[in-house]
Amino acid sequence: MPVLPGAEPYRHDGGEVGVLLCHGFTGTPQSLRPWGEALAAAGLSVVLPRLPGHGTTWREMARTRWQDWYAELDKALADLRGRCAEVFVAGLSLGGCMALRLAQVHGDAVRGIVVVNPSIANDVPLLALAPVLKLFVASVPGVAGDIKKEGVAELGYSRTPVKAAATLPRLWSLVQGELDKITQPILVYHSRDDHVVKPTSVRILRERLNGGNLTVVELTNSFHVATLDNDADQIFAGSLEFIRTHASVPLQRD
């Protein structure tokens, strides 16, 4: 299946500190590419995979589930760990949820976490009916492109495959059920105006991660896809400072 131009994965072999970037549901690496390039320019090793079923057609995505997307990220994490002294994970939206899951599963192998408008809860009541709805409806309108900045577009599907969406509640349940396993430092960027993910997810993180390892930064001039929006530079600079602070080995400039 041909990959949409701009949806290709990104990789940069830099120094001893690595970052795995996870794009969101129905999105592509394009939404995080500038973030990855900014981190790479600072000397980090960066891997930004294209998740299975993404960046091609929504019909292909309908044949995948969250376990397929997570497996791709797990493989990328193993690759980074094999060539870096320390690894951080980061993600946007559902990619943030999967970054949290990686931290839960791999523990100390993940040095720290950065998430932007993470999705860890069901914000759409109709999704509870997805296991039945998928028998009658193949897709519903998409959620890509929630960006405030004029002239900027996200490369993502205009339709959401119901079969793929029906697998999400299980992932959310797993992540919420094991939040106590996250002891790594975590930086959360949260858009005040987000038309895709409601504040529920960040509220849950505030309530459950009360061990002093959580920092939440509010973004005032961006919508959901903040990594392509007006506050993108703040995210890039802040996440780099977070990594510098929590890495035990120095970052190496190219």
Rank of each mutant, 00 (worst) to 15 (best):
H106R: 15
M98A: 03
D79Y: 10
A38E: 14
L39W: 05
G27S: 10
T64Y: 13
G14T: 09
E37Y: 00
L48N: 11
A62V: 07
K75G: 12
S119K: 06
E16C: 11
A62S: 14
W66S: 09
Q67L: 03
E16F: 00
N117A: 11
L20T: 03
V19F: 06
C22L: 13
L20M: 14
A109I: 06
A138T: 11
S119V: 01
P52F: 15
A71T: 05
L94I: 02
A62Q: 08
P131N: 05
L102P: 08
C84I: 01
S119M: 15
L102G: 03
P52H: 07
A109Y: 08
G82Q: 14
I120L: 12
G18H: 01
G15Q: 03
Q67G: 01
P34F: 00
A71W: 09
V116A: 05
C97S: 14
R50P: 03
L73P: 02
L21D: 01
W69V: 00
A130D: 03
F25V: 03
A40W: 01
L126Y: 15
V17E: 00
D68H: 15
A103T: 07
S139D: 14
V116K: 05
T64K: 11
L21K: 07
R59K: 15
G27W: 12
G15P: 14
T56A: 01
D13K: 08
R63H: 13
H106K: 13
R11F: 10
F136V: 15
Q104K: 09
R83M: 11
D108G: 06
V115N: 11
A76R: 08
P49D: 04
Y70I: 02
A38C: 07
G18C: 13
V47L: 14
G96I: 03
G24L: 08
R63W: 02
S31Y: 02
L21C: 02
V89K: 07
G96H: 10
G96R: 01
G36T: 05
G15M: 07
P52L: 09
W69Q: 05
G43S: 07
A78W: 02
G112S: 07
T57G: 09
R11I: 05
